[in-house]
């Protein structure tokens, strides 16, 4: 365990980069994903088709390739080489937004028209219906998949390794190159990711059970 303990601050510093990247990816991805979700249920063809194309295109391509692509395209667009963190953050937002968008779409579409009619018939305005009926129910239904997708996003941040970002896996390979303690080092990384993702998946399961009992699913 010496190899892990001696390099602990360095490794955990890398893990902090993973967390930061995940934070940017989730904030941007969920924001853009909401717009994508709205675009996917839009009745205007000039909104629906471009957004659908964007979603179906990116969902068929490996994330690792998207990370590379942005790393190559950004210098051409802005004229200078970008910091790997910024480049990775942009590719994550653009990529994860398609997945979050599909979750939002499913959430919106899971609400029955009868429910909306019922809300109107009690005298609620459109704004009130949206605020008190539609959004709360949709969020409750989407919460488990949102958490699951957030865990996947967090795991995916390790892929920024490929453009040389100093995140945890990159730093582990650097330490391993010096110390040659692969078993200890990679077991440590695996455990760290496992603990966070496992707790996350339990939380997701908890909300799933909760809404099943409340019969909103």
């Amino acid at each position: 365990m010496d190899a892990v303990l001696e390099n602990l601050p360095y490794l955990l510093g890398g893990f902090l980069t993973n967390l930061q990247l995940a934070a940017f990816a989730l904030a941007g991805g969920i924001f853009l994903g909401t717009l994508v979700g709205l675009g996917r249920i839009s009745k205007r063809p000039w909104v629906y088709y471009p957004v659908t194309l964007y979603v179906n295109f990116l969902r068929n391509i490996p994330l690792i390739l998207v990370i590379f692509w942005f790393f190559f395209v950004m210098p051409i667009l802005i004229g200078k080489t970008l910091d790997p963190f910024v480049s990775a953050a942009v590719s994550f937002v653009v990529f994860e937004a398609t997945y979050f968008g599909e979750i939002f779409r499913a959430g919106f579409q899971s609400i029955s028209k009868d429910l909306v009619s019922a809300a109107y018939s009690t005298g609620l305005t459109y704004r009130q219906t949206a605020a008190y009926i539609l959004v709360p129910i949709a969020v409750r239904r989407m919460l488990p998949s949102l958490i699951t997708q957030s865990i996947i996003t967090f795991q995916d941040t390790s892929l920024a390794y490929v453009i040389g970002l100093q995140e945890m896996v990159r730093r582990t390979t650097i330490v391993d190159g010096l110390e040659v303690r692969s078993v200890q080092l990679y077991t440590f990384v695996a455990i760290l990711f496992f603990v966070i993702c496992f707790v996350g998946s339990r939380i997701s399961l908890h909300y799933e059970e909760k809404s099943r009992k409340a019969k909103v699913l």
Binding site: I151, Q155, D156, S158, L159, Y161, V169, T172, T173, D176, S182, V183, L185, Y186, T187, V189, A190, F193, F194, C197, F198, S201
Partner: peptide, 19 residues
């Protein structure tokens, strides 16, 4: 299922390859 789903694939691959 829990072990293999909650560890990033990249980490798993490096574990098998190096360790």
């Amino acid at each position: 299922v829990e072990i293999f789903r909650n560890i990033p694939f990249l980490v798993q691959l490096f574990f098998w390859f190096y360790a």
